[in-house]
Design a protein around this nucleic acid. Structure first.
Lengths: 186, 186
DNA sequence: ACCTGAACACCGTTCAAGT
DNA sequence: ACCTGAACACCGTTCAAGT
């Protein structure tokens, strides 16, 4: 399997790419459903260029929120250093939910990261780290898997906006954490 | 609060409504993203008529899957009659997940039912029944609420299609049920 | 009272033509 | 090698005109 030796991309291509990401970041921030066409317009770029760099909306989302997601992933080992494994897991899921609630775009990006089955994205790796630490400490059930927990966790900030939403998310998280505990009856 | 005495709708309106629902049912079955325009075409109905009957996609979805959702809701008391409360709850969530997996349209309808904050739809009432029975039997934690559990449950069939999905759903359900148990530590 | 279908403003996607 | 922008086939939504 030869690693294809890509030559360095042209400088204008890099600049366009950066401008697209910047424009998309702003657009997604105040309207998660912003159209790719509008983003191309804001970035002063032809539609074709948009497509060359990002073949679909999901690719753009992951590129735009790449840094945010990386920060979130990096938080896992830090939390693990300061808290008991199960507690670190709870706090990390809290941060995930907060991120998802913050901007519509980020929540879409996390959803995209969950769906991406090809390579494990950093988020899945981070959650894996937390779960494994919990298993070794006999605090987390041995059959828990990252993708499942991520799927459950991504429901924490969905359907937000209702009247009872501040407590709701907290209670849901309690259910998830207690469900992941090792040694529950039956 | 006077109950406005609506006069009976015209017969052609009723027929159109029925034809739209029928066409939509078929369309959603093999493509959850079917366009309203295509459905209107298949139902031999102008676009305006579509809008008169169903102001948006969500309204159409709920109308199309009204019967399926009612059947699902009606299953709750039956399950409760044949099984222990917590077991009935688990089986009902299994059925919910199966329904969501079956056709893309149904899963959208359940999602819509979850979002609909206005009146409690039958699904929420059914889940309420199960949870209350569980609480009285001291099997379910007293602070569990239907909308939250529905939100968690609706993640059971999301992200399906991956390689490990048959077991995954089962394990996720186990986490939810164990998390809902009364008397978990801490 | 209800229906029709043209019309409007958009969308994602493609692709010949440019540099 | 990369970009541009017109063009294509669609979409949801509205609304004058019909019956």
């Amino acid at each position: 399997m030869m690693r294809t030796p890509r030559r360095a991309p042209r400088s204008d291509a890099l600049e366009n790419r950066a401008r697209i990401i910047e424009a998309a970041h702003a657009a997604f921030a105040d309207a998660p459903s912003a159209s790719l066409q509008a983003i191309a317009r804001a970035a002063c770029v032809g539609q074709g260029t948009m497509y060359r760099h990002f073949p679909d909306r999901e690719a753009l989302l992951l590129a735009v929120y790449r840094d945010e997601l990386a920060v979130l992933a990096a938080a896992a080992p830090l939390l693990l250093h300061e808290h008991e494994p199960l507690d670190a897991l709870r706090r990390w899921l809290e941060r995930l939910a907060a991120e998802g609630r913050l901007t519509g775009g980020a929540s879409q990006a996390v959803a995209a990261a969950t769906r991406a089955g090809r390579h494990h994205p950093p988020i899945v790796a981070a959650l894996d780290l937390l779960l494994n630490a919990g298993k070794e400490a006999r605090q987390v059930r041995p059959d828990a898997e990252a993708e499942e927990v991520l799927l459950l966790g991504s429901s924490l900030w969905r359907g937000d906006g209702g009247p009872s939403c501040p407590d709701r998310s907290r209670r849901m998280l309690t259910v998830i954490i207690d469900g992941l505990r090792a040694g529950t009856p039956h």
